[in-house]
């Protein structure tokens, strides 16, 4: 088994992107800090990084969209089976999501610290605090922030990876049908629902209820994201196990 080298190979795809991402975030904060002496109270400037995890979720999704082809080809060149690649991918997924969750928390803490020094300029609140503990009902703390971020990243990254593997497996016609057909279908369905209040009356409460049932508390969110990760990863494996070099 070549799991460890395959894990390192797949991790290599993410490391530079993650470093650059946090360099950009920190640079923006430092730039704001450097501009403080030039600000007057009349400028009314306020730097907020509330819910940076929302941005990182998009970043994690894009990262996983770009993660498949290069490492798959290089692994095949080095005689690594698809099964080993998939297992290594799960490890990479966990490692990258953990680093991102930790990175987000450190960044939020940094901004919170700056907010104490310059209360009128900086403020920082985690996405978890904004969603779950704004009312003081749910527990607060870095551990909860990290757990929330980790499971969010896990679900979106596995979705991104599933989409990129699906895209690889599809032929030209399939790609056109999927990538053009999906948004068209969404627009058509949305238009149909908005044009038919009776249908909207059924579907919208159903979706709201579903989201409430799945994500209304941190434990529910953890279970839901884990299930989504399992489903997305399972589908990825089905697509990957017979993927050939094109």
């Amino acid at each position: 088994m070549k799991i460890y080298p395959s894990f390192r190979l797949q991790l290599r795809d993410h490391i530079p992107a993650v470093i650059i991402y946090y360099i950009v975030l920190i640079s923006m904060a430092l730039l704001s800090l450097a501009l403080i002496p030039f600000m007057t109270p009349d400028d009314n400037v306020h730097v907020t990084t509330n819910g940076v995890t929302a941005v990182t979720i998009i970043f994690a999704f894009i990262c996983s969209l770009c993660a498949f082809k290069d490492s798959f080809f290089l692994s095949i060149q080095h005689s690594v089976s698809r099964r080993t690649q998939f297992i290594a991918r799960l490890g990479t997924l966990g490692a990258v999501c953990a680093v991102l969750a930790l990175g987000d928390e450190l960044y939020t803490l940094m901004l919170t610290g700056l907010g104490r020094l310059f209360p009128t300029v900086f403020s920082g609140e985690s996405l978890y605090q904004m969603i779950y503990s704004y009312d003081g009902m749910s527990p607060k703390g870095s551990v909860f922030d990290i757990i929330f971020s980790f499971f969010s990243f896990l679900a979106v990254s596995s979705l991104g990876y599933l989409l990129t593997v699906l895209n690889y497996r599809l032929n030209k016609i399939g790609k056109v049908l999927f990538w053009a057909g999906t948004p068209i279908a969404v627009v058509l369905i949305a238009s149909y629902i908005s044009a038919h209040p009776s249908v909207a009356g059924i579907i919208i409460p159903f979706l709201t209820g579903l989201i409430w049932a799945l994500f209304s508390s941190l434990p529910r969110m953890i279970i839901s994201c884990t299930l989504l990760t399992v489903v997305f990863s399972g589908l990825t494996w089905l697509l990957m196990r017979r993927a050939g070099v094109k």
Partner: peptide, 17 residues
């Protein structure tokens, strides 16, 4: 993996990034 690690194929297609 064990069987394939005994083989190396140099193909016309370059699979390195």
């Amino acid at each position: 993996d064990s069987a394939q690690s005994k083989i190396f194929l140099m193909s016309e297609t370059t699979l390195h990034p």
